[in-house]
Design a protein around this nucleic acid. Sequence first.
DNA 1: GTCTATATTATGATAGAC
DNA 2: GTCTATCATAATATAGAC
Lengths: 223, 223
Amino acid sequence: MARRQARFTAQDLADDPRLRDHSPDLWREDLGEVQRGLLTSAVRCFAANGYHATTTRDIAEGVGLSPAALYVHFPSKELVLYEIIRVGHERALESVDKPSILAVEDSSDRLRAIISAYTAWHARHHVVARVCQMELAGLTAEHYDEVLELRHRTNEFFRDAVARGVADGSFAKVDVKRVTRAMLSLSIDLVRWYRLDGEDSPEQLGEFYADLALKLVAPGSAG
Amino acid sequence: MARRQARFTAQDLADDPRLRDHSPDLWREDLGEVQRGLLTSAVRCFAANGYHATTTRDIAEGVGLSPAALYVHFPSKELVLYEIIRVGHERALESVDKPSILAVEDSSDRLRAIISAYTAWHARHHVVARVCQMELAGLTAEHYDEVLELRHRTNEFFRDAVARGVADGSFAKVDVKRVTRAMLSLSIDLVRWYRLDGEDSPEQLGEFYADLALKLVAPGSAG
DNA sequence: GTCTATATTATGATAGAC
DNA sequence: GTCTATCATAATATAGAC
Protein backbone atom coordinates (compact mmCIF):
# COMPACT_ATOMS: atom_id res chain seq x y z
CA MET A 1 0.00 0.00 0.00
CA ALA A 2 1.13 3.52 -0.52
CA ARG A 3 0.09 6.31 1.79
CA ARG A 4 -2.55 8.85 2.73
CA GLN A 5 -5.46 8.69 4.98
CA ALA A 6 -6.26 12.40 4.82
CA ARG A 7 -8.77 12.31 7.59
CA PHE A 8 -10.32 15.58 6.47
CA THR A 9 -11.16 16.56 2.91
CA ALA A 10 -11.31 20.09 1.58
CA GLN A 11 -15.09 20.02 1.82
CA ASP A 12 -15.11 19.09 5.53
CA LEU A 13 -12.59 21.79 6.26
CA ALA A 14 -14.49 24.68 4.72
CA ASP A 15 -17.30 24.22 7.25
CA ASP A 16 -15.27 23.24 10.31
CA PRO A 17 -15.80 25.89 13.01
CA ARG A 18 -12.43 25.02 14.54
CA LEU A 19 -10.79 26.25 11.35
CA ARG A 20 -12.55 29.59 11.23
CA ASP A 21 -10.14 32.50 11.49
CA HIS A 22 -9.31 35.75 9.73
CA SER A 23 -6.75 34.36 7.33
CA PRO A 24 -8.59 35.52 4.17
CA ASP A 25 -7.79 39.11 5.21
CA LEU A 26 -4.10 38.39 5.52
CA TRP A 27 -2.77 37.92 1.99
CA ARG A 28 -0.93 40.45 -0.12
CA GLU A 29 -3.18 42.84 -2.01
CA ASP A 30 -1.26 42.36 -5.24
CA LEU A 31 -2.23 38.68 -5.42
CA GLY A 32 -5.26 37.72 -7.48
CA GLU A 33 -8.48 36.42 -6.02
CA VAL A 34 -7.73 32.85 -7.06
CA GLN A 35 -4.28 32.97 -5.50
CA ARG A 36 -5.67 34.22 -2.21
CA GLY A 37 -8.37 31.54 -2.33
CA LEU A 38 -5.71 28.89 -2.84
CA LEU A 39 -3.72 30.21 0.10
CA THR A 40 -6.76 30.13 2.34
CA SER A 41 -7.59 26.59 1.20
CA ALA A 42 -3.98 25.52 1.76
CA VAL A 43 -3.95 27.02 5.25
CA ARG A 44 -6.98 24.97 6.24
CA CYS A 45 -5.53 21.77 4.78
CA PHE A 46 -2.09 22.28 6.33
CA ALA A 47 -3.59 23.15 9.72
CA ALA A 48 -5.89 20.12 9.79
CA ASN A 49 -3.76 17.42 8.18
CA GLY A 50 -0.22 18.80 8.02
CA TYR A 51 1.82 19.99 5.04
CA HIS A 52 3.06 16.60 3.85
CA ALA A 53 -0.32 14.91 4.29
CA THR A 54 -1.92 17.58 2.12
CA THR A 55 -1.86 17.05 -1.63
CA THR A 56 -1.91 19.72 -4.29
CA ARG A 57 -5.24 18.14 -5.27
CA ASP A 58 -6.64 18.85 -1.80
CA ILE A 59 -5.65 22.49 -2.04
CA ALA A 60 -7.12 22.94 -5.52
CA GLU A 61 -10.33 21.09 -4.64
CA GLY A 62 -10.84 23.53 -1.79
CA VAL A 63 -11.50 26.26 -4.36
CA GLY A 64 -13.18 24.02 -6.93
CA LEU A 65 -10.26 23.82 -9.35
CA SER A 66 -8.51 20.90 -11.01
CA PRO A 67 -5.17 19.67 -9.63
CA ALA A 68 -3.19 21.30 -12.43
CA ALA A 69 -4.65 24.76 -11.87
CA LEU A 70 -2.54 25.35 -8.78
CA TYR A 71 0.62 25.47 -10.86
CA VAL A 72 -0.62 28.41 -12.87
CA HIS A 73 -0.65 30.45 -9.68
CA PHE A 74 2.22 28.97 -7.68
CA PRO A 75 5.38 27.31 -8.96
CA SER A 76 5.35 24.57 -6.31
CA LYS A 77 3.59 23.32 -3.22
CA GLU A 78 6.52 24.41 -1.08
CA LEU A 79 6.11 27.98 -2.29
CA VAL A 80 2.51 27.95 -1.17
CA LEU A 81 3.71 26.96 2.29
CA TYR A 82 6.47 29.55 2.20
CA GLU A 83 4.09 32.36 1.24
CA ILE A 84 1.80 31.41 4.13
CA ILE A 85 4.54 31.13 6.73
CA ARG A 86 6.46 34.21 5.60
CA VAL A 87 3.38 36.45 5.53
CA GLY A 88 2.23 35.03 8.86
CA HIS A 89 5.52 35.86 10.52
CA GLU A 90 5.68 39.32 8.95
CA ARG A 91 2.17 40.20 10.12
CA ALA A 92 2.81 38.85 13.62
CA LEU A 93 5.88 41.02 13.91
CA GLU A 94 3.99 44.04 12.54
CA SER A 95 1.32 43.51 15.18
CA VAL A 96 3.78 44.62 17.87
CA ASP A 97 6.50 46.57 16.01
CA LYS A 98 4.35 49.59 15.16
CA PRO A 99 4.25 53.28 16.08
CA SER A 100 1.28 53.13 18.43
CA ILE A 101 3.11 50.65 20.64
CA LEU A 102 6.57 52.16 20.32
CA ALA A 103 5.08 55.47 21.49
CA VAL A 104 4.08 54.02 24.87
CA GLU A 105 6.56 55.38 27.43
CA ASP A 106 5.68 53.51 30.60
CA SER A 107 7.34 50.09 30.64
CA SER A 108 4.38 48.28 32.16
CA ASP A 109 1.93 49.85 29.74
CA ARG A 110 4.22 49.01 26.87
CA LEU A 111 4.60 45.37 27.89
CA ARG A 112 0.84 45.15 28.32
CA ALA A 113 0.31 46.61 24.85
CA ILE A 114 2.80 44.21 23.27
CA ILE A 115 1.51 41.06 24.94
CA SER A 116 -2.13 41.85 24.30
CA ALA A 117 -1.52 42.75 20.64
CA TYR A 118 0.65 39.71 19.93
CA THR A 119 -1.72 37.34 21.71
CA ALA A 120 -4.78 38.81 20.00
CA TRP A 121 -3.07 38.53 16.61
CA HIS A 122 -2.33 34.84 17.19
CA ALA A 123 -5.91 34.23 18.31
CA ARG A 124 -7.46 36.14 15.42
CA HIS A 125 -5.26 34.31 12.91
CA HIS A 126 -4.86 31.09 14.86
CA VAL A 127 -5.19 28.79 11.85
CA VAL A 128 -2.45 30.57 9.92
CA ALA A 129 -0.45 30.90 13.12
CA ARG A 130 -0.77 27.17 13.67
CA VAL A 131 0.77 26.48 10.27
CA CYS A 132 3.51 29.00 11.10
CA GLN A 133 4.39 27.08 14.26
CA MET A 134 3.78 23.47 13.27
CA GLU A 135 4.85 23.21 9.63
CA LEU A 136 8.25 24.89 9.61
CA ALA A 137 9.87 21.53 8.79
CA GLY A 138 8.18 21.58 5.38
CA LEU A 139 10.20 24.59 4.22
CA THR A 140 13.42 24.33 2.22
CA ALA A 141 16.56 25.14 4.18
CA GLU A 142 16.79 28.60 2.56
CA HIS A 143 13.20 29.55 3.29
CA TYR A 144 13.49 28.14 6.81
CA ASP A 145 16.46 30.40 7.49
CA GLU A 146 14.57 33.47 6.27
CA VAL A 147 11.70 32.70 8.61
CA LEU A 148 14.09 32.10 11.49
CA GLU A 149 15.44 35.61 10.97
CA LEU A 150 11.92 37.04 11.33
CA ARG A 151 11.44 35.00 14.49
CA HIS A 152 14.68 36.28 15.98
CA ARG A 153 13.64 39.87 15.35
CA THR A 154 10.32 39.24 17.06
CA ASN A 155 11.97 37.58 20.06
CA GLU A 156 14.40 40.47 20.44
CA PHE A 157 11.52 42.90 20.38
CA PHE A 158 9.92 41.15 23.34
CA ARG A 159 13.20 40.78 25.18
CA ASP A 160 13.87 44.51 24.85
CA ALA A 161 10.46 45.32 26.33
CA VAL A 162 11.15 43.15 29.37
CA ALA A 163 14.74 44.34 29.78
CA ARG A 164 13.57 47.96 29.62
CA GLY A 165 11.20 47.50 32.55
CA VAL A 166 13.84 45.72 34.59
CA ALA A 167 16.37 48.49 33.87
CA ASP A 168 14.08 51.37 34.86
CA GLY A 169 12.80 49.59 37.97
CA SER A 170 9.24 49.09 36.76
CA PHE A 171 9.72 45.32 36.98
CA ALA A 172 11.38 42.99 39.43
CA LYS A 173 14.95 41.86 38.67
CA VAL A 174 13.74 38.83 36.69
CA ASP A 175 15.77 36.62 34.40
CA VAL A 176 14.98 38.49 31.19
CA LYS A 177 15.71 35.68 28.75
CA ARG A 178 13.73 33.01 30.59
CA VAL A 179 10.78 35.25 31.41
CA THR A 180 10.59 36.49 27.83
CA ARG A 181 10.54 32.94 26.56
CA ALA A 182 7.70 32.11 28.94
CA MET A 183 5.64 35.07 27.70
CA LEU A 184 6.19 34.04 24.08
CA SER A 185 5.18 30.48 24.97
CA LEU A 186 1.82 31.66 26.27
CA SER A 187 0.98 33.57 23.10
CA ILE A 188 2.30 30.94 20.71
CA ASP A 189 0.88 27.84 22.37
CA LEU A 190 -2.67 29.08 21.97
CA VAL A 191 -2.55 27.96 18.33
CA ARG A 192 -3.00 24.40 19.65
CA TRP A 193 -6.36 25.02 21.29
CA TYR A 194 -7.86 28.44 20.42
CA ARG A 195 -11.17 28.70 18.57
CA LEU A 196 -12.91 31.88 17.48
CA ASP A 197 -16.24 30.49 18.71
CA GLY A 198 -14.84 29.77 22.18
CA GLU A 199 -15.28 31.70 25.40
CA ASP A 200 -12.65 34.37 24.80
CA SER A 201 -12.50 36.86 21.96
CA PRO A 202 -8.95 37.53 20.70
CA GLU A 203 -8.97 40.85 22.54
CA GLN A 204 -10.16 39.30 25.81
CA LEU A 205 -7.49 36.63 25.68
CA GLY A 206 -4.91 39.32 24.89
CA GLU A 207 -5.93 41.28 27.99
CA PHE A 208 -5.87 38.14 30.12
CA TYR A 209 -2.38 37.16 29.00
CA ALA A 210 -1.15 40.73 29.45
CA ASP A 211 -2.35 40.50 33.06
CA LEU A 212 -0.46 37.23 33.50
CA ALA A 213 2.68 38.68 31.95
CA LEU A 214 2.66 41.62 34.35
CA LYS A 215 2.30 39.21 37.28
CA LEU A 216 5.45 37.46 36.12
CA VAL A 217 7.46 40.69 36.37
CA ALA A 218 5.65 42.36 39.27
CA PRO A 219 8.05 44.09 41.70
CA GLY A 220 8.16 42.70 45.22
CA SER A 221 8.04 39.10 44.04
CA ALA A 222 11.54 39.23 42.52
CA GLY A 223 13.42 36.12 41.42
CA MET B 1 8.72 15.19 -9.75
CA ALA B 2 7.44 13.30 -6.79
CA ARG B 3 8.16 14.43 -3.28
CA ARG B 4 10.61 14.40 -0.41
CA GLN B 5 13.45 16.61 0.45
CA ALA B 6 14.09 15.11 3.89
CA ARG B 7 16.52 17.74 4.95
CA PHE B 8 18.05 15.47 7.57
CA THR B 9 19.03 11.83 7.11
CA ALA B 10 19.15 9.20 9.82
CA GLN B 11 22.93 9.59 10.01
CA ASP B 12 22.78 13.34 10.63
CA LEU B 13 20.16 12.86 13.29
CA ALA B 14 22.06 10.36 15.43
CA ASP B 15 24.75 12.96 16.15
CA ASP B 16 22.59 16.09 16.37
CA PRO B 17 22.91 17.54 19.87
CA ARG B 18 19.50 19.18 19.52
CA LEU B 19 17.96 15.71 19.32
CA ARG B 20 19.62 14.34 22.40
CA ASP B 21 17.13 13.36 25.08
CA HIS B 22 16.26 10.45 27.34
CA SER B 23 13.87 8.68 24.98
CA PRO B 24 15.84 5.40 24.90
CA ASP B 25 14.89 4.91 28.58
CA LEU B 26 11.21 5.34 27.84
CA TRP B 27 10.08 2.24 25.97
CA ARG B 28 8.27 -0.78 27.38
CA GLU B 29 10.57 -3.38 28.94
CA ASP B 30 8.85 -6.22 27.12
CA LEU B 31 9.90 -4.87 23.74
CA GLY B 32 13.08 -6.28 22.20
CA GLU B 33 16.26 -4.31 21.75
CA VAL B 34 15.70 -3.90 18.01
CA GLN B 35 12.16 -2.64 18.55
CA ARG B 36 13.32 -0.05 21.07
CA GLY B 37 16.09 0.99 18.70
CA LEU B 38 13.56 1.47 15.92
CA LEU B 39 11.36 3.57 18.19
CA THR B 40 14.29 5.79 19.14
CA SER B 41 15.28 6.16 15.49
CA ALA B 42 11.69 6.97 14.54
CA VAL B 43 11.43 9.58 17.29
CA ARG B 44 14.46 11.40 15.94
CA CYS B 45 13.20 11.27 12.35
CA PHE B 46 9.67 12.38 13.27
CA ALA B 47 10.96 15.19 15.46
CA ALA B 48 13.35 16.53 12.83
CA ASN B 49 11.38 16.03 9.60
CA GLY B 50 7.84 15.23 10.66
CA TYR B 51 5.91 11.95 10.47
CA HIS B 52 4.84 12.18 6.83
CA ALA B 53 8.24 13.35 5.62
CA THR B 54 9.87 10.35 7.29
CA THR B 55 9.99 7.11 5.30
CA THR B 56 10.10 3.61 6.73
CA ARG B 57 13.50 3.44 5.04
CA ASP B 58 14.73 6.40 7.12
CA ILE B 59 13.65 4.73 10.35
CA ALA B 60 15.29 1.41 9.48
CA GLU B 61 18.51 3.05 8.29
CA GLY B 62 18.81 4.74 11.65
CA VAL B 63 19.49 1.34 13.23
CA GLY B 64 21.38 -0.09 10.26
CA LEU B 65 18.61 -2.34 8.97
CA SER B 66 17.05 -2.81 5.54
CA PRO B 67 13.70 -1.17 4.74
CA ALA B 68 11.82 -4.46 5.07
CA ALA B 69 13.12 -5.24 8.56
CA LEU B 70 10.83 -2.70 10.19
CA TYR B 71 7.76 -4.78 9.31
CA VAL B 72 9.03 -7.75 11.30
CA HIS B 73 8.81 -5.59 14.43
CA PHE B 74 5.88 -3.28 13.71
CA PRO B 75 2.85 -3.93 11.51
CA SER B 76 2.82 -0.42 10.04
CA LYS B 77 4.44 2.98 10.18
CA GLU B 78 1.38 4.40 11.90
CA LEU B 79 1.74 1.91 14.72
CA VAL B 80 5.29 3.09 15.30
CA LEU B 81 3.94 6.61 15.70
CA TYR B 82 1.11 5.42 17.91
CA GLU B 83 3.44 3.51 20.23
CA ILE B 84 5.61 6.62 20.61
CA ILE B 85 2.74 9.02 21.23
CA ARG B 86 0.80 6.70 23.52
CA VAL B 87 3.80 5.87 25.70
CA GLY B 88 4.84 9.51 25.75
CA HIS B 89 1.43 10.61 27.02
CA GLU B 90 1.24 7.80 29.57
CA ARG B 91 4.66 8.65 31.01
CA ALA B 92 3.89 12.38 31.11
CA LEU B 93 0.73 11.68 33.08
CA GLU B 94 2.59 9.30 35.42
CA SER B 95 5.15 12.03 36.08
CA VAL B 96 2.51 13.97 38.02
CA ASP B 97 -0.16 11.41 38.97
CA LYS B 98 1.92 9.51 41.50
CA PRO B 99 1.83 8.90 45.29
CA SER B 100 4.71 11.23 46.20
CA ILE B 101 2.83 14.17 44.69
CA LEU B 102 -0.65 13.15 45.81
CA ALA B 103 0.67 12.98 49.38
CA VAL B 104 1.55 16.68 49.41
CA GLU B 105 -1.08 18.42 51.55
CA ASP B 106 -0.30 22.11 51.12
CA SER B 107 -1.86 23.43 47.90
CA SER B 108 1.07 25.65 46.96
CA ASP B 109 3.58 22.87 47.60
CA ARG B 110 1.49 20.49 45.58
CA LEU B 111 1.15 22.85 42.62
CA ARG B 112 4.89 23.46 42.78
CA ALA B 113 5.55 19.72 42.77
CA ILE B 114 3.23 19.13 39.82
CA ILE B 115 4.53 21.94 37.65
CA SER B 116 8.17 21.17 38.31
CA ALA B 117 7.72 17.43 37.66
CA TYR B 118 5.68 17.90 34.49
CA THR B 119 8.03 20.55 33.13
CA ALA B 120 11.13 18.51 33.95
CA TRP B 121 9.60 15.45 32.27
CA HIS B 122 8.95 17.41 29.08
CA ALA B 123 12.48 18.80 29.13
CA ARG B 124 14.12 15.44 29.82
CA HIS B 125 12.12 13.78 27.05
CA HIS B 126 11.71 16.83 24.86
CA VAL B 127 12.25 14.99 21.56
CA VAL B 128 9.56 12.41 22.31
CA ALA B 129 7.39 15.16 23.76
CA ARG B 130 7.81 17.15 20.57
CA VAL B 131 6.48 14.24 18.54
CA CYS B 132 3.62 13.90 21.04
CA GLN B 133 2.63 17.54 20.47
CA MET B 134 3.42 18.07 16.79
CA GLU B 135 2.55 14.79 15.07
CA LEU B 136 -0.91 14.00 16.45
CA ALA B 137 -2.37 14.51 12.96
CA GLY B 138 -0.49 11.42 11.76
CA LEU B 139 -2.56 9.10 13.95
CA THR B 140 -5.67 7.24 12.77
CA ALA B 141 -8.95 8.61 14.14
CA GLU B 142 -9.19 5.75 16.68
CA HIS B 143 -5.66 6.19 18.01
CA TYR B 144 -6.09 9.95 18.08
CA ASP B 145 -9.17 9.58 20.29
CA GLU B 146 -7.32 7.32 22.72
CA VAL B 147 -4.54 9.87 23.07
CA LEU B 148 -7.05 12.67 23.54
CA GLU B 149 -8.49 10.77 26.49
CA LEU B 150 -5.04 10.67 28.13
CA ARG B 151 -4.66 14.39 27.52
CA HIS B 152 -8.01 15.14 29.13
CA ARG B 153 -7.05 13.19 32.22
CA THR B 154 -3.80 15.12 32.46
CA ASN B 155 -5.54 18.46 32.03
CA GLU B 156 -8.08 17.61 34.73
CA PHE B 157 -5.27 16.69 37.08
CA PHE B 158 -3.78 20.16 36.70
CA ARG B 159 -7.14 21.89 36.94
CA ASP B 160 -7.89 20.10 40.20
CA ALA B 161 -4.60 21.25 41.68
CA VAL B 162 -5.37 24.89 40.84
CA ALA B 163 -9.02 24.66 41.94
CA ARG B 164 -7.96 23.13 45.26
CA GLY B 165 -5.71 26.07 46.09
CA VAL B 166 -8.41 28.56 45.11
CA ALA B 167 -10.98 26.72 47.26
CA ASP B 168 -8.83 26.58 50.41
CA GLY B 169 -7.66 30.17 50.07
CA SER B 170 -4.03 29.39 49.30
CA PHE B 171 -4.38 31.06 45.92
CA ALA B 172 -6.12 34.18 44.66
CA LYS B 173 -9.57 33.78 43.13
CA VAL B 174 -8.18 33.24 39.65
CA ASP B 175 -10.03 31.93 36.59
CA VAL B 176 -9.15 28.27 37.08
CA LYS B 177 -9.66 27.12 33.52
CA ARG B 178 -7.70 29.91 31.89
CA VAL B 179 -4.85 29.88 34.40
CA THR B 180 -4.53 26.11 34.16
CA ARG B 181 -4.30 26.34 30.40
CA ALA B 182 -1.58 28.95 30.70
CA MET B 183 0.46 26.71 33.02
CA LEU B 184 0.13 23.78 30.64
CA SER B 185 1.21 26.02 27.77
CA LEU B 186 4.45 26.88 29.53
CA SER B 187 5.40 23.23 30.08
CA ILE B 188 4.28 22.03 26.66
CA ASP B 189 5.72 24.81 24.53
CA LEU B 190 9.25 24.08 25.69
CA VAL B 191 9.33 21.17 23.22
CA ARG B 192 9.83 23.80 20.50
CA TRP B 193 13.08 25.17 21.87
CA TYR B 194 14.52 23.08 24.73
CA ARG B 195 17.92 21.38 24.40
CA LEU B 196 19.59 19.18 26.98
CA ASP B 197 22.90 20.97 26.35
CA GLY B 198 21.36 24.39 27.00
CA GLU B 199 21.58 26.60 30.05
CA ASP B 200 18.89 24.92 32.15
CA SER B 201 18.80 21.32 33.31
CA PRO B 202 15.30 19.79 33.25
CA GLU B 203 15.12 20.17 37.02
CA GLN B 204 16.21 23.82 36.95
CA LEU B 205 13.61 24.67 34.32
CA GLY B 206 11.01 22.79 36.35
CA GLU B 207 11.81 24.90 39.41
CA PHE B 208 11.74 28.09 37.37
CA TYR B 209 8.34 27.34 35.86
CA ALA B 210 6.98 26.30 39.25
CA ASP B 211 8.00 29.75 40.52
CA LEU B 212 6.21 31.38 37.60
CA ALA B 213 3.09 29.28 38.17
CA LEU B 214 2.91 30.33 41.81
CA LYS B 215 3.20 33.97 40.78
CA LEU B 216 0.16 33.51 38.54
CA VAL B 217 -1.96 32.41 41.52
CA ALA B 218 -0.34 34.47 44.29
CA PRO B 219 -2.93 35.93 46.69
CA GLY B 220 -3.14 39.71 46.82
CA SER B 221 -2.85 40.08 43.04
CA ALA B 222 -6.25 38.52 42.43
CA GLY B 223 -8.06 38.71 39.10
C1' DG C 1 -6.47 30.19 -17.05
C1' DT C 2 -8.62 26.01 -16.92
C1' DC C 3 -9.08 21.42 -18.24
C1' DT C 4 -7.85 16.18 -19.20
C1' DA C 5 -4.29 13.28 -19.57
C1' DT C 6 0.15 11.54 -18.16
C1' DA C 7 5.28 11.37 -17.06
C1' DT C 8 8.12 10.43 -13.24
C1' DT C 9 9.36 9.15 -8.93
C1' DA C 10 9.34 7.23 -4.45
C1' DT C 11 6.75 5.31 -0.72
C1' DG C 12 4.37 1.78 2.26
C1' DA C 13 4.22 -2.77 2.36
C1' DT C 14 4.97 -7.80 0.76
C1' DA C 15 7.30 -12.16 -1.30
C1' DG C 16 10.48 -15.38 -0.82
C1' DA C 17 15.46 -16.81 -0.23
C1' DC C 18 18.77 -17.64 3.44
C1' DG D 1 14.98 -12.17 11.78
C1' DT D 2 17.39 -10.23 8.06
C1' DC D 3 18.12 -9.60 3.37
C1' DT D 4 17.23 -8.43 -1.89
C1' DA D 5 13.85 -7.75 -4.95
C1' DT D 6 9.49 -5.92 -6.22
C1' DC D 7 4.43 -4.74 -6.20
C1' DA D 8 0.94 -1.38 -6.06
C1' DT D 9 -0.21 3.05 -5.43
C1' DA D 10 -0.38 7.82 -5.27
C1' DA D 11 1.69 12.36 -5.37
C1' DT D 12 4.22 16.41 -7.64
C1' DA D 13 4.50 18.38 -11.59
C1' DT D 14 4.14 18.91 -16.81
C1' DA D 15 2.15 18.66 -21.74
C1' DG D 16 -0.95 20.19 -24.71
C1' DA D 17 -5.89 21.06 -26.07
C1' DC D 18 -9.45 24.58 -25.57
